[in-house]
Amino acid sequence: MIPVPKGFRFAASKAAFKREGRYDLAVMLSDTPAVAAGVFTTNRFQAAPVLQCIETLASRERVRGVVANSGQANACTGEQGLVNCRVSLEMAAGAVGVDMDELLPASTGVIGQHIKLDRWRAALLELEGSLGKVGPMEFTRAIMTTDKFPKLAWATIRHNGQVARVLGMAKGAGMICPNMATMLGFIACDADVEPGLWRDMLRQAVERSFNRITVDGDTSTNDCVLALANGASGLRIDPTTEPDGRQALQTALSEVCEALAYMIVQDAEGGTKVVRIHIVGA
């Protein structure tokens, strides 16, 4: 049983963006506005969903969720790609009952092709009906492309007699290079944390994990890690009076990101073995 942080629900549908009969469109939704953080690709050709996320996070500290798809990257698609991203975002938001600017988009798949808005529309009824009836496993399967297995990791925080959870989901197997790569990462947390602190913590966790892996030396256009913390557990992280709480959350967040990064290396396209090297006295 995957321990889902309180106040989060999932939805998934089979839109057939690239292949029939598999999940390829999904939403992670917080019941209440959640503090949002994001880290993005350093590629100069950032895809439309990345640009939309950056714009949203520049003006909002809290969102309700993320919408992710595989099979079409909406990258290198120009101004029309940005328009299509917003149209698809509006459709997904309507299906799960939130405003468009309360969702952060993420896409992975074929670069250079415009997204198939007709298939988005056709998938909305299933997406709406599945909300709260599917879980993080279906969400993770919906973002897989060449991945051989779904990638999930979680951790528990215990502080002052209260418990909070961190859940992470990711995809990635090729075009993996330091400073983000062809990967998507999503993190749900039910701790109560300030927006600035949450963003600092995500950057630190990513620096220690996803930014330290490489598969083939290529950095892609769509890579992002998006993290939401909704406070539903009631565990308040106050770094000014309780540094132990901050450290506990930072450790849990970093452990989840590191576990997901290891899975990406384990699933490397063309890779056959994983070797761990321990250096002493360097």
Rank of each mutant, 00 (worst) to 15 (best):
V83K: 15
S107F: 12
Q113E: 15
G97Y: 13
P105K: 03
G112R: 04
A92L: 11
I111A: 00
G112A: 08
A92F: 03
G94A: 12
E102I: 14
D101P: 05
T108N: 03
C85T: 00
S88M: 10
E90N: 12
N84L: 09
D99M: 10
S107K: 00
S107L: 03
D101W: 10
E90F: 07
E90K: 15
V110M: 05
S107E: 01
M91I: 10
R86N: 03
P105H: 07
G109C: 06
G112I: 15
V83C: 13
A106H: 13
A106W: 04
P105F: 05
L103V: 00
E102Y: 13
G94L: 11
R86T: 04
M100P: 04
L89H: 06
A95H: 11
A93C: 09
V83Y: 15
D101V: 12
A95M: 10
D101L: 15
D99I: 00
T108L: 04
Q80Y: 01
A93L: 07
G94K: 10
H114E: 08
G97P: 00
D101K: 07
G81T: 09
Q113L: 13
V98E: 02
M100N: 02
C85D: 14
M91R: 00
D99K: 09
A93F: 01
L89N: 08
V110D: 01
Q80A: 11
E102N: 05
G97M: 12
G109H: 06
M91P: 09
G81R: 10
S88N: 08
A93Y: 03
R86V: 01
H114V: 02
L89W: 04
M91L: 14
G109D: 08
M100W: 02
G112M: 06
A92V: 15
N84A: 09
